[in-house]
């Protein structure tokens, strides 16, 4: 359970921190309830400005992956896991719909793919 920052990477440091923490939360390397380092601690350890790590934490919090509990610190939130569960439930419902319509798995996946690409295309740059 590490966070790595590379000065050579074209990815901004805050995004490197955000993406790695998000990945570890989503693949449950960091389980619900795990306390994250303080913003200051992580910034010091990684040689980053405090604002850089604070931005990464803010975005993770907005995504529901972490939550700040006052002075107790920042913790991996259960909301992120609930979000995944909702996605699985939606996928199960979709699978039932395409089966009832007689659509094959390959075409069903293509529809999902197109929908994801359309959603990504609508995201602000």
């Amino acid at each position: 359970m590490l966070v790595t920052i590379s000065a050579d990477s074209p990815v901004p440091p805050y995004e490197q921190v955000r993406a790695q923490l998000a990945q570890q939360i989503l693949d449950q390397t960091l389980v619900v309830g795990t306390r994250l380092p303080t913003v200051r601690r992580l910034a010091t350890d990684l040689g980053l400005a405090t604002n850089t790590v604070a931005r990464a934490y803010r975005e993770l919090e907005e995504a529901g992956l972490i939550e700040t509990r006052g002075r107790a610190g920042t913790f991996v939130s259960a909301a992120g896991q609930r979000g995944r569960e909702r996605a699985r439930e939606a996928a199960a419902r979709y699978a039932q719909v395409v089966r009832s319509l007689g659509i094959g798995p390959a075409e069903a996946l293509r529809i999902v793919q197109a929908a994801l690409e359309a959603t990504n295309g609508r995201e602000p740059a």
Partner: peptide, 15 residues
């Protein structure tokens, strides 16, 4: 020494 590193690693959870 740390400032000269191009890659830094830290714990992802509080220690």
């Amino acid at each position: 020494i740390g400032a000269a590193l191009t890659r830094r690693v830290a714990h992802a959870q509080a220690v």
